[in-house]
């Protein structure tokens, strides 16, 4: 059981993602990017290298600059998304990363640098990122 958000929670999901070959094929595969995750005021950084998510760590707001892009939502919205994943085994309908990005007025993916090449990694690696968060269905999450 891991509490969201925390490094321990991301580590538990990383472990599932790193070990499951099914998450590394069928349009997924190697992924090289640094993703920020903003949950309310708490900030985390996920490093994807090749077939692994190699690191999850807490960061400061200034360190968001190092992220290619970051996913930002209020804590209650993250909770709703993760509960949807828990319920169905994967994100459905209004809770996929793509739909959240399109459906929310403020979007889901953002950056501090406005470098479109780095921002577009959200779309280029969308399947991998979805697989990663869908992996949370396999752990018990508390909030």
């Amino acid at each position: 059981m891991a509490k969201f958000p925390s490094v321990a929670w991301f580590d538990a999901v990383r472990d599932i993602y790193n070990k499951d070959d099914a998450m590394h094929g069928a349009g997924s595969g190697t992924c090289n990017c640094v993703v920020g995750v903003q949950v309310g005021r708490e900030l985390f950084r996920l490093t994807f290298e090749g077939f692994e998510c190699s690191q999850a760590e807490m960061i400061t707001k200034a360190q968001l600059d190092d992220c290619d892009f970051y996913l930002h939502m209020a804590a209650k919205d993250w909770r709703t998304m993760l509960q949807n994943i828990q319920e169905h085994g994967h994100a459905t309908d209004n809770f996929t990363l793509n739909t959240l990005d399109l459906g929310r007025v403020e979007g889901l993916s953002a950056s501090t640098h406005n470098d479109q090449y780095r921002e577009d990694l959200f779309f280029r690696y969308n399947q991998t990122l979805q697989f990663f968060f869908d992996g949370s269905a396999r752990i018990q999450t508390t909030f």
Binding site: T96, N98, Q127, Q130
Partner: peptide, 25 residues
């Protein structure tokens, strides 16, 4: 993808989004 009616369509849209993203980049 946002209005997909089933997992078949969702999978196609997700993969095609990535393919397009590379071309656009």
């Amino acid at each position: 993808n946002r209005f997909a009616y089933n997992g078949v369509e969702r999978k196609i849209y997700e993969c095609v989004t990535q393919d397009f993203a590379r071309l656009i980049t």
